[in-house]
Design a protein around this nucleic acid. Structure first.
Lengths: 208, 208
DNA sequence: GATGATACATCCATACGCTATTTGTATCAT
DNA sequence: ATGATACAAATAGCGTATGGATGTATCATC
């Protein structure tokens, strides 16, 4: 398993799906379900191919190897995540609301993501270092993506430097809530999450 | 190695050192140095006793076992840390300044703490879970301590519930900077850290 | 009376060899 | 292009052995 930050960058850099190959989709579908049920480390190419109702050899004809398949699954999840985030934020006009709603969405999306939760729960050692002590590349990628996203609907009130710092803090907080969800507010309660974001996140955006 | 949150609670609950036994201090001194040099897992009771210039048997007469010795070392480090934090914050009058200066101090203290950095660097798997996926107890303890500390020099402008939530965010951010120090600002530069805290942390305290 | 030295049982991490599984490729048939 | 079979290579898992470390007991010493 390689550094996830590369995949994030790639996924974020690919604006259009381009390749809705049904055969490939069916395979990644099967792989995703398999991974959700047994984790990535314990899933074998044989199990995945049987679940996809193809021969194992065909699997290798589509993907160079297991790593590449894992990459494809994760990349697709990231693309979906970013697309959903975009859609969730789009209805709102000003940056304030988008920030708050985006934060709420990310919280919910992370906590409802079966594969992510599965990995964190049953094989955390495979992902924990990349999100913590070796989390620099990932943090940078996520921060820069968020900053660019915030600057797209910017209000000219903030310098790019300010926005990047804000994005850094936001990413760190969301990552913290992912890794250690136990907190005073019920993160699954959208209203509580909104109150929290309004009270503690929006003030950081304030001031020109 | 047991859950660190217990130790944090104990250390925070013990306001006075009470026991300045020189013999015990010499042992924990030696153990600390040994741990700093080789990590906790790779340090043996034999090495520690030789460094403390006592027989290994005597070590066992002072401490029930290695776990207890590790606990003692960590507890003392925590006591020192909290005492130093108190001292660093004391010169400042109002909550705003104390928050900012306290944040700066914690950043520096964590990054300059040889043992902590040593463990994170050479045997992170022993501590990482307790600070992330199993970090609930630790986070709760740290958050409650900080909240109580903030309420002691409270300004009546915030409800206890607000303060606890603020403490939660602050602890999460400091933990994030500990685990993933790579960021845009130079955390070792006090002025940059202060600017950051003023810009992004103090606004959270604002409003009554 | 506490410390130190020796000895000893127990525990635990590590390593090694073995086996079974899995990965990845080649070949051939459909 | 897919599937079935076969196969080499890499890897994970497992039981076992081994060495070091933990923890305790005994006795001598100061």
């Amino acid at each position: 398993m390689s550094d996830p930050s590369q995949r994030l960058l790639q996924a974020a850099a690919a604006p259009d799906p381009a390749d809705p190959d049904p055969a490939l989709e069916a395979i990644t579908d099967a792989a995703l379900r398999q991974f959700e049920l047994f984790g990535m480390a314990r899933s074998t190419m044989d199990q995945i191919s049987r679940r996809a109702k193809i021969a194992r050899v065909t699997l290798y004809r589509r993907f160079p190897g297991k790593d590449a398949l894992i990459d494809a699954v994760i990349q697709r999840e990231l693309r979906r995540f970013l697309a959903d985030l975009d859609a969730a934020v789009q209805p709102f006009e000003d940056v304030d609301d988008r920030l708050v709603e985006g934060f709420i969405f990310v919280l919910g999306a992370m906590r409802n993501h079966t594969l992510l939760q599965r990995v964190l729960d049953s094989e955390p050692e495979t992902i924990l270092p990349y999100l913590t002590v070796q989390g620099g590349p990932f943090l940078t990628a996520a921060r820069d993506y968020l900053a660019a996203r915030l600057l797209r609907d910017h209000d000219d009130a903030h310098t790019p430097e300010e926005v990047v710092l804000l994005a850094d803090v936001l990413v760190r907080l969301m990552l913290s809530f992912l890794l250690t969800p136990q907190t005073l507010i019920d993160l699954d309660d959208r209203e509580q999450a909104r109150t929290f974001a309004l009270r503690y996140l929006r003030p950081m955006l304030a001031r020109g």
